[in-house]
Design a protein around this nucleic acid. Structure first.
Lengths: 169, 169, 169, 169
DNA sequence: TTTT
DNA sequence: TTTT
């Protein structure tokens, strides 16, 4: 693998939700996460404190011996603070009405937990009394060609879609 | 301006087209460019040489005394090789059918020309005898709120839309 | 300030000691810290787990309104986990025997605490019963031209010079 | 290979001299280069244009199938513009008087030529009529344990040691 | 000297 | 020592 050009992203931020991991027949794993970075500044006009949060869609895939997709799925949780290095990738998909759509993601090549305990404190809610949890229905196509089985770690039904309501992808 | 988190992008690539600059009433400039990075690798199965090109939508805005929007518009051309440092930003817009759409851009904070002569060799065509040039019709809304006047440097009518045909944004 | 070339360093690591801050007559502050990054790997021959720690000398200076030198001195402590962005700088100094020596430092342009509580847990020792504390005698020249007054936050006399004895710069 | 912490350097600059490559019995190659980055600014007091050049010692080693040490030695030349990604490493050595000395280097993990022709124009001097060329005598220890044979591409005897005499590391 |  |  060589390259002409440089396509590098560096993020430090927090997960907005538990990530979602899918496993492939060959044992490989892909984990998707939504990571927030924010910046704050003081408005020169009004003097108010302002904040802007940016949400990043990050994809962790296994990379040979580096089981990044799997590790991300195991250790990252809602609220986890994480360092990600990766590259930008825009993939095309087709929405329900047949229109072309594009989604830009950060494809991670490296990840580091920045929480001392190796997990965010926000997630909690493990063992949450089930209800009719539906693990399927990713809102967007996933690019991978092999059929995958979704196995989120801890996504109680009631907040499963918080993510999609609030985050622009 | 402070921040929690890190949101950093580093690109080295070539412009797919002449950039497009718009000026605002206050004299500020915003330049949009499409920058390609590519990577090549040898397919393990077939042994073939493969290449994948990624296109990045980059926005150069003036930043106080650093007239980045203007400089980018003046010096960058189709084919220019450039280093860009910036951050990711996803902005929402509404398409013709009233649907929400999202576009992810790299908002540049630093730029450096990597061509020795300060411009790519691909662009050329300066002073090209106009014809019915139509400076309008950016395929996507531009986010800036103030009315802007588009003044591309060298965008002959006949290839104005090459960009939009080939590049996924 | 423009530049030809890029000179960028990104570190995430832990402080090996409380940083040392000096104040200048004009109110400016410079803080020096020693930051460790480490990597671990498994030896292919022996199968042993190996670790290598790298120590980085980082200089935080005030930058206009961004009181980085001061902030670093106030909030960083021994053990703090920190993100630093900066550039490499090698400065020349003369040792006791009159020989030229060179020290490479990371001059920080941005810093972010990565501890949730905003400080490491290792430092402690605030209000430590003084003894004959000697705030002077930096072993190395500091580049700044104005005379500075050293005011470390928590540096009991007995270990004040550990730093200069142990660290390779 | 895992790591705790991040230790990353990104450089874009020009080689001050032809690099120096050494080959090891196992066929591996290590190339050392000195790369300049510079920044310019206007002095607020005097209005003068100022420039500061920073020199970086960069080490390119073979990395498994990625023959980086060899490639760097073949393609880089005095004047070449290059992108380097790597990490900081400070190594200890002993000078003639028996004193400990430390040298900080950038250990490259990735490299990209930024000259269109794949080489700087400054080097030249290929096929230079030999004379009593002496490939040995690196002024500094090299860290590698195996004995190495130096085989610079184009380093006429008379200036072979200019490098080590002039550069501050 | 840090950290896990 | 480079480069513009």
């Amino acid at each position: 693998m060589a390259s002409r050009g440089v396509n590098k992203v560096i993020l430090i931020g927090n997960l907005g939700n538990d990530p979602e991991t899918r496993f492939f027949p060959d044992g490989g794993a892909v984990t998707n996460a939504s990571i927030a970075t924010s910046e704050t500044w003081r408005d020169k006009q009004t003097g108010e404190q302002k904040e802007r949060t940016e949400w990043h869609r990050v994809v962790f895939r296994d990379r040979g011996n580096y089981r990044l997709g799997q590790i991300a799925g195991e250790y990252l949780k809602k609220g986890s603070k994480v360092f990600v290095e990766g590259s930008l990738q825009t993939r095309k998909w087709t929405d329900q009405s047949g229109q072309d759509r594009y989604t830009t993601e950060v494809v991670a090549s490296e990840m580091q937990m920045l929480d001392s305990r190796g997990a965010g404190q926000g997630g909690g809610d493990f063992g949450g009394g089930g209800g009719s949890y539906n693990p399927s229905a990713p809102a967007q196509p996933q690019g991978g060609s092999a059929p995958a089985q979704s196995t989120p770690k801890a996504a109680p039904a009631q907040d499963f879609n918080d993510f999609d309501d609030d985050i622009p992808f």
